[in-house]
């Protein structure tokens, strides 16, 4: 088993830190799944908590300047699956904020398996002496027989996917609505309209976004003749709010997909080859 990755672009490194910080707000430990063409982080706090299921998808070839891995000896699809404490990893990476020269991630075996974070903290601008920080974050290697339990969630086939406006507006909005109503309905149409609806005995609140970009549409047989395709789903407001408040990344592009009465899929595209996903299950009103 072998894993090494290196980052050199300061912007990428800062983003990586923000992503780990986002995960640490959602779960104590996350599952890191490393393969040749993808690195995944999955935060799935045990049932009962309000945290939503969130996973991060990284294309290592685009993201890391150097990347080597050797998975467990399966020829077709070599993998490494680790369980990583998010808070510790976040602390280890905190130096990435200061524009270091590089950051290396390595899977090492001291007395126990560790994810070693090696950061050269010499800032590019100043000429002071080299300062290097190395953190060993203890991780658990998940054996192959348990892999089926740690499968990466699949991006669902949504009936409608719309690109939503800036995160800042919607985060504040859902944060307020969660104080008034336990559930919120997402209702989208193929003409680029998204409605967020909350209804209680005391108040009815509807928020409308118009002229959104339609990213994908799946028309079923029954809907073929309809002028306008619609989809709606009611989800837990606290869970949704938690996803938005955990996001530490300055996101420009947020897309929201709806499967009628089943789930909502939120996707934040940070840049090519790196995205944060979340699935929110439907709840009955």
């Amino acid at each position: 088993m072998k894993f090494r990755a290196m980052m050199q672009d300061p912007e990428y490194m800062r983003e990586f830190l923000y992503i780990v910080q986002t995960l640490s707000k959602l779960a104590k430990t996350c599952v890191m799944k490393i393969s040749m063409d993808k690195v995944y982080f999955v935060a799935n706090e045990e049932s009962g908590s309000a945290a939503p299921l969130v996973w991060v998808e990284i294309n290592p070839k685009l993201y890391f300047s150097e990347y080597t891995m050797q998975g467990v000896d399966s020829e077709h699809d070599p993998h490494i699956v680790l369980s990583v404490p998010t808070l510790n990893l976040g602390t280890a990476l905190s130096l990435l904020r200061n524009n270091p020269c590089f950051c290396k991630l390595k899977l090492t075996n001291l007395q126990f398996p560790c994810l070693t974070v090696d950061i050269d903290a010499t800032t590019k601008s100043s000429s002071d002496k080299s300062r290097r920080a190395m953190h060993h974050v203890p991780v658990d290697v998940i054996p192959r027989c348990d892999w089926p339990n740690f499968a990466v969630p699949v991006v669902p086939d949504c009936k409608l996917v719309l690109n939503m406006p800036s995160n800042r507006l919607i985060r504040g909005l859902i944060d307020k609505i969660k104080n008034l109503s336990p559930t919120i309905i997402f209702y989208a149409t193929s003409s680029g309209e998204m409605n967020l609806v909350a209804e209680t005995d005391m108040a009815t609140i509807t928020t409308r976004y118009q002229n959104l970009e339609l990213r994908a549409i799946n028309i079923s047989e029954g809907d073929k003749d309809k002028e306008q395709i619609e989809a709606s789903c009611s989800v837990d407001c606290k869970k949704t709010a938690l996803f938005f408040s955990a996001l530490q990344v300055p996101s420009n592009e947020l897309s929201c997909g709806i499967v009628d009465d089943q789930l909502i899929h939120l996707e934040v595209n940070i840049r090519d080859g790196i995205a944060i996903h979340s699935k929110l299950p439907a709840v009955c009103v």
Partner: peptide, 10 residues
């Protein structure tokens, strides 16, 4: 211009 909210309060 594309965003609006309507609230009705009892």
């Amino acid at each position: 211009a594309d965003i609006s909210a309507e609230c009705s309060i009892k």
